[in-house]
Design a protein around this nucleic acid. Structure first.
Length: 327
DNA sequence: CGCATTTGACCTGCGC
DNA sequence: GCGCAGGTCAAATGCG
């Protein structure tokens, strides 16, 4: 879309999601795309995570008709490396090639490609015992536990990813996650961490890694949909404690932040603020509410001149303790 | 002591 | 067929 009406950009400078076919759609941060105007009712991350929302709705929410996404992809390629440099081509197994987000690649077409890769990637989880029982090798005992039905192609889970500026890797989203792996990422000095929802019978996973291009950017990829509500009591989850579920709905927050963002000189700040805000919520939990979190970004921020007037706009959704008000 | 994290090994798919 | 890279497992370790 070339029409650049004022739009609200959400808490990331890049947003990706995969539809059920594995197609990854990306929205790159561009000045002229800031303020991506989304229907707030759709932009509820929590709802997304709970699975009460169809991922395709995101496309709708973002107004990503195929033509829209094409335009965005084009922009991405023209300005900077597309998001797929992060390797989110569908989790695909090995070496996963970057899914070229060519200007011509519509959502559907890219879905098909990514979907194929995705299947490969997901199949990896269907680990075959691979002669595990035989040989009696030391590896057998480990693998034997992994026996699963053969030939059963596991359904690929919908995924979506987003980028957030933060020094804290693990984003808090209200759910409890358990880290089950970490891998070095090719061409990146930063490892990728693998998390799984600790709630039983919930197979949602997420991957967290830091962009090698912008170390201040954390890329989080969610896979699957929660089949349970937000944990009532999160250990040390300040976010959950301080923010009602609606607070995890980023829509209102973004709406407010975007107001700040419209202030011209404060745009840079606003953008950072916008990105860091959810990160702050995360950091509390990431550090289990302790004070060892070295990255209380929000407290480091100074409200730009003129923003103080709009500070009140935040109060309805940001506890005052989160805002360091300059005298 | 229980739970979360770390970390090396292992498995799988793909490209050459 | 081999090597590589992504993804997962699980024992070891750490921490509250």
């Amino acid at each position: 879309m070339s029409d650049q009406e004022p739009k609200d950009l959400y808490f990331h400078d890049l947003f990706q999601y995969e539809d059920h076919d594995g197609g990854m759609v990306s929205i790159n941060n561009q000045p002229n795309l800031q303020g991506f105007d989304v229907n707030p009712s759709y932009m509820n991350l929590t709802e997304c995570l709970k699975g009460s929302m169809d991922y395709n709705s995101l496309a709708t929410a973002f107004g990503l008709s195929s033509s829209t996404s094409e335009a965005l992809f084009s922009s991405i390629e023209g300005d900077q490396k597309p998001a797929n440099h992060l390797g989110y081509s569908g989790g695909g197994g090995g070496g996963d090639v970057e899914t070229p987000l060519t200007p011509n690649s519509s959502m559907s077409s890219s879905s098909a490609e990514a979907g194929a890769d995705e299947d490969c990637g997901k199949n990896k989880k269907d680990r075959q015992p691979k002669g595990s029982s035989e040989d009696g090798g030391d590896s057998s005992k480990k693998v034997s536990k992994l026996a699963k039905k053969k030939g059963e192609k596991k359904q690929r889970e919908p995924r979506f990813a987003f980028m957030t500026k933060s020094e804290v890797d693990h984003l808090e989203d209200g759910y409890r996650w358990r880290k089950y792996g970490q891998k070095a990422v090719k061409n990146s000095p930063y490892p990728r961490s693998y998390y799984r929802c600790t709630t039983q019978k919930c197979g949602v996973k997420k991957r967290v890694e830091r962009s090698y291009e912008d170390p201040s950017t954390v890329i989080t990829t969610y896979e699957g949909q929660h089949n349970h509500p937000l944990p009532a009591t999160l250990r040390g989850n300040a976010a959950a404690a301080l923010f009602p579920p609606s607070m995890l709905n980023l829509a209102p927050a973004t709406r407010t932040f975007s107001t700040l963002a419209g202030g011209g000189p404060s745009s840079a700040f606003s953008q950072e603020f916008l990105f860091q805000m959810p990160q702050y919520m995360i950091s509390n939990n990431a550090n289990q509410g302790s004070s060892r979190n070295p990255n209380y970004h929000l407290q480091q921020y100074q409200l730009p001149h003129g923003a103080a007037d709009q500070y009140g706009l935040l109060q309805d959704l940001v506890p005052s303790m989160f805002l360091k008000q300059e005298p």
